[in-house]
């Protein structure tokens, strides 16, 4: 195990090596990603959705996205997702027009409620989409956020 560990540390300078090590389960904390890493690199919404490997989502009124209608600064857009669907096990947040639309995904377990709150960057006015997995089914909701200054470019 120790020799293996050395190799991992040596190889850890490149992000690729880290990804491989994570895939092999060598780095702690280990996890099985709800969304595979590739989904985060997807350049458009369709690819990101496909990358997550989720079945087609149905719209749900039980998901509430709390985000500003107009964000003055696209670099910091507070987003809060509350899902009152029973058995919510994962929540993903996507900003549709970002260069890489998938922003974050959250896997909930051990008493964690269907709620996450974070801050995201948005390159342009776009829909923020929340995708919720509950009991093997996929639900979604969207909310438009108008961005006056983008937060993704230079």
């Amino acid at each position: 195990m120790n020799a293996l560990r050395r190799n991992v540390l040596k190889g850890a300078t490149g992000a690729g090596a880290v990804a491989v090590a994570v895939a092999a389960g060598l780095i702690t904390p280990t996890r099985v990603l709800a969304a595979p890493r590739a989904a985060f690199d997807a350049k458009n919404l369709a690819d990101a959705m496909k990358g997550m490997g989720l079945p087609a989502a149905t719209d749900s009124k039980d998901i509430v996205i709390k985000a500003p209608d107009i964000a003055e600064n696209g670099a910091v857009v507070p987003v809060e997702v509350t899902s009152s669907i029973a058995g919510t096990s994962a929540i993903a947040i996507l900003a549709e027009k970002n260069n890489t639309p998938l922003v974050a995904d959250f896997e909930l377990s051990g008493g964690a409620q269907g709620y996450v709150s974070t801050r995201i960057k948005m390159g342009a006015t776009a829909l923020v989409r929340a995708i919720v997995t509950a009991g093997g089914k996929t639900y979604q909701a969207t909310k438009e956020v108008k961005v006056t200054i983008g937060g993704c470019g230079g």
């Binding site: 990603l33 051990g110 996450v116």
Partner: peptide
């Protein structure tokens, strides 16, 4: 209780709230 994957689209100095 929570496992999150993030991309570059999360703001600088990330904030995370959960229950």
């Amino acid at each position: 209780v929570l496992k999150a994957g993030m991309g570059g689209g999360v703001s600088k100095n990330p904030y995370l709230g959960f229950k």
